[in-house]
Amino acid sequence: MGRIVSFLGSFVAKWGGAIIRFGLMFGMVMFFAKFAVPFFVDLMDAVAFILSRVNALIDYINSYTGNTDELITLFFNVLKSIGFIDAFRDAYTLFKPIFFTLIVVLGGKIVMRFLSLFARLLNYLFISRID
């Protein structure tokens, strides 16, 4: 009878400890995932902010009337007359979705790689702790 109780006690202690360790590791993964999601959201906000600032700059250059300095007005008039500003605006409009999509995909890849690495390390820790 003592051997059965000893066997069951060691079995419960082994798996109870493994379940507690797994719960702690799962909690740690969720804790770090809590930081990865806001990173991705902040990255999206940064992309939207940069997009709005570049659009505002292009609108300012297109609507520049030149009331302040004659040399700056001449510079913008030359750029407009050779078509540089229109070419930049058209190229920016064409490549804007591609450029910002790549930034968002890169940020998502960083987040996913971090979470995958962390989960894999915890998995290795969990496997090594089971006797």
Rank of each mutant, 00 (worst) to 15 (best):
A18H: 02
A91Q: 03
F49H: 08
D59K: 11
A119R: 01
R120K: 05
I19T: 05
F35R: 04
G2M: 09
I82W: 07
V105M: 11
L94Y: 10
L122H: 02
L71T: 08
F84R: 01
I110P: 00
M44F: 13
V37F: 14
L79T: 00
L43T: 11
I50P: 01
N67V: 13
L79D: 02
F39N: 03
L8P: 01
N67R: 11
L43W: 09
G107T: 03
L43I: 15
I85E: 00
V47W: 13
G27C: 14
L43N: 09
G83K: 05
R53M: 15
V105S: 00
R21M: 11
L74G: 05
F32I: 13
F118W: 02
R113P: 01
F26C: 07
D45K: 12
D59R: 12
M30K: 04
L121C: 05
A13Y: 05
K109S: 15
D86S: 05
R3Q: 07
P38C: 12
G27Y: 14
L71Y: 08
T93E: 06
L79W: 03
D86Y: 04
D90T: 15
L117S: 13
T101Y: 01
L43G: 11
G16Q: 03
V47G: 04
M25P: 00
L94V: 11
I85W: 02
F11H: 04
F11C: 04
I4Y: 04
F88W: 09
Y64W: 03
N67P: 08
L79E: 03
M25S: 01
L106C: 12
F100Y: 03
N77K: 06
I61G: 07
R89V: 15
V105Y: 08
M44S: 05
I110A: 09
N123V: 06
N77V: 03
K34Q: 10
S52R: 10
G16D: 03
M30W: 05
F40P: 02
V78M: 08
K96N: 13
V111E: 02
V29T: 04
L57S: 09
F75A: 13
V37E: 04
F99M: 15
V5G: 04
A18D: 08
K109F: 14
N77S: 11
F35Y: 10
K34I: 15
L8G: 00
P97S: 11
T73I: 12
F126G: 04
I82A: 01
W15P: 01
R120A: 08
V104W: 12
